[in-house]
Design a protein around this nucleic acid. Structure first.
Lengths: 212, 212
DNA sequence: CTCGAAATGGACTGACCAGTTTGATTTTCT
DNA sequence: AGAAAATCAAACTGGTCAGTCCATTTCGAG
């Protein structure tokens, strides 16, 4: 088994700095965060910050990139058997609820706000977030939808279009509310489940196999 | 008729400052814009800026508020006769295309990015943008949808839920792409029309009167 | 033409900030 | 234990920024 080696001081400080950077950048933005502030919150001297990350911009890019990469992680191992033999709506509802539970989280919403606000300054970070978030989710869902269509459980011409439709049917309203109304407007778990059910209902009404 | 009185120098400068503020704030953000820069671009002395607006924050709030208030203007006088006697899908498609044409504009998208990035600093501006944008559009659409349901052209229980669904069916994908991918990713007029048609098709498949 | 209001520009204050320097201290690894 | 690497505190550089001050000029209405 893996040996739990004690983290070195350097590693501990590295993590402390990343944690402080996350807190400050997500709260105050890129320009609104100062390196002195960050060093103090990390309980670390300023030189140590520069020794580890080189510059404010490099630290920002590293932090945002790593958060972005981990963004849609707990989700995409859900390519289990899509539907046993009929309950497509139930499957889609569960999928939507899982997706919403992952995405509608203060950490990820703040990351998204931060990155959107910095599109002009850091267009690559924004593109990376788009690729790792919606684009990845849609591609993955399109495969599943195509498989369901193959089995005759859905009636779909263009699987990517259908996946895109479902994705924004699910995410559109809560995401755009959360962007502008702040974390207090995040729906609770029950509201998310109801919304997921509604999205699945609309989708099946459009793409259900019983359409001629 | 209204007399076209020549604008005084003071009025001209006031507008020049607002124009410069729009350009700079939308491009560089709140913190990224300096008052010296703004005065220079306005062809005005710094004193004049402070004489007119008092402070950077006040100028920012005034600019964003006025842009927000005018945001969904060219649209909501479209409460003409919703549908003569049948073509609900066509009516919805036209409505969606109009809405998309107004919203998917660099100016408004940049405003939205700016406001989202400043949610923590200026929560009231964000709330105002939400109210004047999506919330207003959805309320207005809900009335129309209820009227169509009344005439038996749609089968709708909850008009607000249906309006919300249609709204994000229309705006979700292009809006969220534009937020992260920048103005270059704005779909052209033809793509917008096709997307509007698709949204209308999905909506009618779900809420069409021919559902039992 | 005249007088008050508005605008000018340029210097100035006080604060902040990214990044560097230095020399001493502590941690890590062998 | 002892050398190399990492960290520290604190001062410092060069620059920027919001907002103010002031003496002079320009504008516009009567």
């Amino acid at each position: 088994m893996a040996v739990a080696k004690a983290p070195t001081q350097s590693e501990r400080k590295h993590l402390a700095m990343l944690a402080a950077a996350e807190q400050l950048f997500l709260r105050h933005g890129y320009l609104g965060t100062s390196m002195d502030e960050l060093a103090e919150l990390s309980q670390v001297s300023k030189q140590t910050v520069y020794a580890h990350f080189g510059s404010k911009e490099a630290l920002f890019v590293e932090l945002v990139s790593s958060m972005t990469a981990r963004a849609g992680d707990g989700l995409h191992d859900l390519d289990e058997v899509p539907a046993p033999d009929g309950d497509v709506a139930g499957f889609l509802e569960r999928y939507a609820a899982d997706e919403l539970t992952v995405v509608m989280t203060p950490r990820l919403l703040r990351l998204r706000r931060l990155v959107i606000g910095e599109v002009e300054r850091f267009p690559d970070l924004a593109r990376a977030l788009y690729e790792n978030g919606p684009a990845r989710a849609i591609r993955s869902l399109a495969v599943t939808i195509a498989a369901l269509a193959e089995r005759g459980l859905l009636s779909v011409d263009d699987a990517v279009e259908a996946a895109t439709t479902f994705n924004w049917l699910v995410m559109g309203a809560p995401m755009n509310e959360a962007m502008l109304l702040g974390d207090d407007a995040i729906p609770d778990a029950d509201a998310l489940r109801r919304h997921a059910a509604h999205a699945a209902r609309v989708f099946v009404a459009t793409y259900g196999a019983d359409r001629h």
